[in-house]
């Protein structure tokens, strides 16, 4: 599903040049659950943003489902993104002004799903993450774990083939964290490819494979299964 070769990303500020990704190469197949680990600042979030088509690399190749997307323009990337990729962030990134239901509904609006169909699908997915009873609440009224469940629901409501999760349990206690990890595992078992950045060895054990990074490069790949 994903194949990157010699991917580079360099941040230039006035004086400093930071090489966030340094000729990084690896491959992720359909249906895999991959964990990305490494010390702070080694480039994990940068990598995830590029894989999620939120940002473009400075050099190298990025094949998504066999198509070269490294130099896609903004519009094409957005199109590809909204139909294929779901995101889960450490800080949830729910919209405060919208209810739980409306937050989850958003991706469907942007992909042009009809209202009745949206309602059905949002309710189904809210049911699945067991947050249906709170559908009309606002994010601030929920606990961290509940918010992250909503975020997961939002990520999967469009049935994406790929879910990118950046430290999804970073702001959660262990029991809430485990719940979220269980949800990701379930999704993976139903065929969704998952790439997850984490600092937790515990969480990484839910995955099939761990990519360890250091200074923008892969150092090792542990296959767990």
């Amino acid at each position: 599903m994903i194949k990157i070769t010699e991917l580079e990303k360099i941040y230039r500020t006035e004086e400093v040049e930071t090489v966030a990704l340094n000729k990084l190469s690896f491959e992720v197949r359909d249906g895999e659950f991959v964990a990305v680990m490494g010390p702070s600042g080694c480039g994990k979030s940068t990598l995830l943003n590029i894989l999620g088509l939120l940002d473009d690399p400075d050099a190298g190749s990025f094949l998504f489902n066999g198509i070269e997307v490294a130099h896609f323009n903004e519009r094409k990337r957005a199109d590809l993104r909204k139909h294929n990729i779901g995101f889960v962030f450490q800080s949830f990134n729910l919209i405060d002004e919208l209810t739980v239901f409306e937050n989850v509904e958003l991706p469907l609006i942007y992909t042009g799903v009809k209202s009745a169909e949206r309602k059905k699908r949002v309710e189904a997915v809210l049911d699945k993450v067991q947050i249906m009873h709170r559908r009309n609440h606002y994010p601030q009224q929920l606990s961290g774990g509940q918010q992250q469940r909503v975020a997961v629901a939002r990520a999967v409501v469009n049935n994406p083939k790929l879910i990118l999760a950046d430290e999804p349990t970073g702001n959660l206690d262990s029991s809430n964290g485990n719940e979220v990890m269980q949800m990701l595992t379930d999704l993976n078992e139903q065929g969704t490819t998952i790439i997850m950045v984490t600092h937790s060895e515990h969480d990484s054990r839910y995955s099939h494979r761990i990519i360890r990074m250091l200074d923008g490069q892969t150092v090792t790949e542990n296959i767990l299964v």
Partner: peptide
């Protein structure tokens, strides 16, 4: 700003 970012990640276009 943040809301706009989130919406964009979720697929909102500039005209949207």
């Amino acid at each position: 700003t943040k809301e706009i970012g989130v919406r964009k990640v979720l697929g909102a276009s500039v005209p949207n």
